[in-house]
Amino acid sequence: MRFRGKVWKFGADVDTDAIIPARHLNTSDPGELARHCMENANPSFAKEVKEGDIIFAKENFGCGSSREHAPIAIKASGISCVVAGSFARIFYRNSLNMALPIMECPEAVEITEEGDEVEVNLGKGEIINHTRHKTFECQPLPPFMQKLVESGGLMGYIKQKSGLQRELKPK
């Protein structure tokens, strides 16, 4: 999977209330959530984000609540991929489960600025910053998480497995 787009840059500890404030959690409609995406961090984001743009953020992106509305809002806003120094664990899990591409690469985040043109190659674990003419190698996804993604996210994986299980031990 490869993505090329313009960067939106955020700092450390971007929490889920910044990504999608709880006052909007009376719905799980992706379009509605996208309209308020990043509202508490950068109020112009939702209006100006373009299809294919990429989020770069420092450490602990997505900390706080378990709300899956956060990756849903980001995905529905048109963001193709999130690159961070590190991710909070529930956000990391939620993103993989619902196939929002994410990658950890502190080195790339360090030198990349808002508005840079970057290319992210998930399979290869590579990020190219075209504005600054720099290439970074990152950790590719661990094998189990790759398996999840290949099964079409967690639900695909579980459907295959539970079909098998129900034959073995009917409830």
């Binding site: 378990s66 709300r67 899956e68 529930i90 899990r93 939620n94 489960n97 619902m98 996210g153 967690l154 639900m155 994986y157 579980i158 459907k159 497995k161 539970s162 299980q165």
Partner: peptide
Amino acid sequence: GIGSTDLAAAMIS
């Protein structure tokens, strides 16, 4: 804590 999709998967399996 986990997300909603994790919960759905656990409710099934």
